[in-house]
């Protein structure tokens, strides 16, 4: 359904192809240094370190600098986290402070393996 995959693959190199070892490819859309965005970046890195050590890659896209990139993943709300790998794509909006919701959104088991 979503047409997000194709468009900006030229703009942003897809590390998934270069590094098959990375299981989780996450893209975080933010808008400048707003409190929500700053919190989201912090929350995401902390969460990934806890639950996906060594298996993730985070790509940060600032829409203030690149507003056209919002089209690809149909971004309206900020911040938005997009799980690009593994498929299917998932979107999580908000500052990611609700860890349980984030884990559920990423379809990660609570136990963390």
């Amino acid at each position: 359904m979503m047409s997000g995959h194709s468009d900006e693959s030229q703009d942003v190199p897809d590390p998934a192809t270069g590094n098959p070892a990375v299981e989780y490819y996450l893209r975080l859309y933010v808008a400048g240094q707003s409190p929500n965005c700053v919190r989201a970046v912090d929350n995401l890195t902390r969460l990934c370190e806890e639950h996906l050590p060594g298996q993730y890659r985070i790509e940060l896209i600032d829409l203030v600098e690149n507003p056209t990139l919002a089209r690809g993943d149909e971004i309206v709300a900020v911040p938005t986290l997009v799980r690009r790998l593994p498929p299917p794509p998932r979107k999580i909006i908000g500052d990611l402070s609700q860890t349980e919701n984030v884990l559920a959104g990423l379809q990660l088991p609570e136990a963390g393996g």
């Binding site: 359904m1 979503m2 859309y29 808008a31 707003s34 929500n36 919190r39 989201a40 929350n43 829409l63 203030v64 507003p67 919002a70 089209r71 149909e74 971004i75 309206v76 709300a77 900020v78 911040p79 938005t80 986290l81 794509p89 998932r90 979107k91 999580i92 909006i93 908000g94 500052d95 990611l96 402070s97 609700q98 860890t99 919701n101 984030v102 559920a104 959104g105």
Partner: peptide, 21 residues
Amino acid sequence: HIDPGEIVEAGAFDLEGLFLR
């Protein structure tokens, strides 16, 4: 296009993305 089934909310957000677009 926003697919409600695809979106999970996890914290505070705004529609700055829409404004920027």
